[in-house]
């Protein structure tokens, strides 16, 4: 009855197996090829179709819990947008996203951010805007009522870029890094829906893999034009950036580890079911 024993493992053995097997590709990367999905191309092509000087909003709506997924997505995209000469209005509708967003911007613009020459004209960081979806709607209707100052306390009216961007009407692209509510659905409802719909304000989303299935109806309806799906999406975008520019591709080992983890979970399900089948057909519990 050795097989029956395997199907009755203590949960701690499962934990150890997971820890052990996921560690292997991190220490010795498998260097698996990365296929790029159509959802990722949606983000890439939309961003590429923008012309220099267009205004993009970059919204950090995630907390620490999804940093491994959302952060590399946002960093790669901001890099892309900067290379294309887009002007970026960065902000956060999640309180937790405020400091993280600042950190991401420092990764891309250098550790001196915001003390860089292009601050105020090419890029601004408004920081956390309170009020969740209400804050989103306020920002879309009138950027100056949404918040009095940027993240650092400079009045919004003193920033040249924000003098130009008075509402969502002047925004050409909305990049949403999300892991919950408020997220892409709230942007669609309270910003895009009120300001000309998908044709006037395309939305690209980088999301934790949990929420991606739920946003597919909006993708199919064209309300969202591209999605970066979790860690895989981040890796794919980094890959595209490293092909086009000199951008480091860092998610390789992580994606290898993800592959191993997925196979392991499928094996767990299979072994668990084999045990179930044995018990069922040997007349045990159902």
């Amino acid at each position: 009855m050795a097989l029956e024993k395997i199907t009755h493992l203590d949960r701690r053995y499962i934990y150890i197996l997971l820890f052990f097997f996921v560690s292997i590709p991190l220490l010795a990367p498998l260097k698996l090829p990365i296929p790029i999905s159509e959802h990722t191309y949606g983000v890439y092509d939309t961003t590429n179709a923008m012309s220099a000087g267009d205004v993009a909003v970059c919204s950090f709506d995630f907390g620490p819990a999804t940093i491994p997924e959302n952060r590399p997505q946002a960093a790669a995209w901001i890099f892309h947008a900067r290379e294309l000469g887009l002007r970026i209005v960065a902000l956060a509708f999640w309180a937790g996203g405020g400091p993280i967003g600042e950190d991401v911007l420092r990764d891309v613009y250098g550790s001196d951010f915001p003390n860089i020459p292009e601050y105020g004209t090419e890029v601004v960081y408004l920081g956390y805007i309170p009020g969740n979806e209400v804050g989103m709607q306020t920002f879309g209707d009138n950027t100056q009522s949404a918040k009095g100052t940027d993240h650092y306390g400079t009045p919004i009216g003193d920033l040249p870029l924000m003098q130009e961007v008075t509402s969502a009407e002047q925004v050409d692209l909305w990049a949403e890094w999300t892991s919950g509510t408020p997220g892409e659905q709230q942007v669609i409802q309270f910003v895009q829906g009120r300001h000309g719909g998908p044709s006037a304000l395309p939305i690209v989303v980088g999301s934790t893999a949990v929420s991606v299935p739920g946003m597919m109806p909006f993708y199919a309806a064209g309300q969202i034009v591209g999605i970066l799906n979790g860690l895989a999406g981040a890796g794919e975008y980094e890959k595209l950036m490293s092909n086009d520019y000199d951008y480091p591709f860092e998610q390789g080992p992580g994606l290898d580890a993800q592959s191993v983890a997925h196979v392991l979970v499928i094996l767990f399900v299979a072994v668990g079911n084999i045990g179930y089948a044995i018990r069922r057909y040997s007349g045990g519990e159902s």
């Binding site: 997924e69 080992p253 993800q258």
Partner: peptide
């Protein structure tokens, strides 16, 4: 089922993120 796949993917990413921090 798709949601389950997404959930596993996201949670594993987080765990991988922690391991990468350690290593």
């Amino acid at each position: 089922g798709a949601a389950y796949g997404g959930t596993v993917m996201a949670r594993m990413s987080l765990f991988i993120g922690r391991l990468r921090f350690l290593y």
